[in-house]
């Protein structure tokens, strides 16, 4: 269970997240959508205790992330937007590092589980290479395996499918849906509205740090006066491309 209660974060004078409140319940996939710079990553960082909210509270399974940081983090598997992993370790070593920290018992069971996940995501053959040799998508896949290896009750995923090949993305989708059905709480952000539409049970759209719409797909459709696809709803709420300026720009060039 993830609870954001009036989360607010200011960077100097700039309000990046503005009194954001929402809940993600166990067995639910919640999609956080919003234009670039709307505050999705900042919100997730506050939920993880990486950033201190200027105001408001974040709770994970009842634990306040600032007061009971360690207990709260124990539940969470996190895949960051831009994976900065220890370059000088191999993928396999890094996953085991995470396993050790979360006290997943060492042994053949853990090794098999890691192997299985690596195989599922097609990076088994690279797992004995140094992370610095990985491509962007490969590093991200290692990050995903590391986040799943300690069977977290709460998953926080920041644009997890970005840069992942179609097969990988489909695999991740199936895994997430399976985990949800087994009761995992999942919060994910994405710019691919199709993914959000197909995977998420509920969706929150934020703009300039504020929640501007929230609900299931059906509820959002109602709110956006009959727009059908999520893309139309999204563009309707946050504004679409400025066709006049585009035309002007293209005109200048020729």
């Amino acid at each position: 269970m993830i609870e954001a209660i009036a989360l607010t974060r200011k960077f100097s004078e700039f309000i990046a997240v503005d009194r954001l409140s929402f809940q993600v319940r166990p067995g639910e996939i919640y999609g956080l959508l919003g234009p670039n710079g709307s505050g999705k990553t900042t919100t997730m960082r506050m939920l993880l205790g990486l950033l201190k909210p200027t105001m408001g509270t974040a709770r994970i399974n009842g634990f306040d992330v600032l007061e009971n940081t360690v207990e709260a983090k124990r539940f969470i598997g996190f895949v960051p937007e831009e994976a900065v992993l220890p370059d000088r370790l191999t993928g396999w070593e890094y996953i085991n590092y995470v396993g050790d920290i979360w006290r997943v018992p060492r042994g053949s069971e853990r090794d098999e589980e890691i192997d299985e996940l690596l195989t599922l995501l097609d990076i088994k053959d690279a797992s004995d290479d140094l992370i610095e040799t990985y491509s962007k998508g490969m590093a991200r896949k290692i990050g995903i395996v590391a986040a799943l290896i300690h069977t977290p009750k709460v998953l926080i995923l920041d644009e997890v499918q970005a840069g992942i090949d179609p097969r990988g993305a489909a695999t991740i989708k199936e895994i997430l849906i399976g985990l949800r059905d087994r009761g995992t709480t999942i919060l994910m952000s994405t710019h691919v509205l199709e993914i959000a539409e197909r995977m998420c049970d509920r969706i929150g759209i934020i703009d300039k740090g504020k929640m501007i719409a929230e609900g299931t797909m059906a509820e959002l459709r109602l709110k956006a006066k009959g727009q059908q696809s999520l893309e139309d709803i999204f563009l309707d709420l946050t504004g679409g491309p400025d066709m006049q300026r585009i035309a002007a720009f293209l005109g200048e060039d020729s």
């Binding site: 070593e93 290479d129 140094l130």
Partner: peptide, 26 residues
Amino acid sequence: EDLLILLKHDLTGTVRIRNVKGKRSE
């Protein structure tokens, strides 16, 4: 215990004596 785990894995990367097995790595 956390400290020891952190140290162990931190040092794995820096004082590596054996080559890693992967084909991509030098």
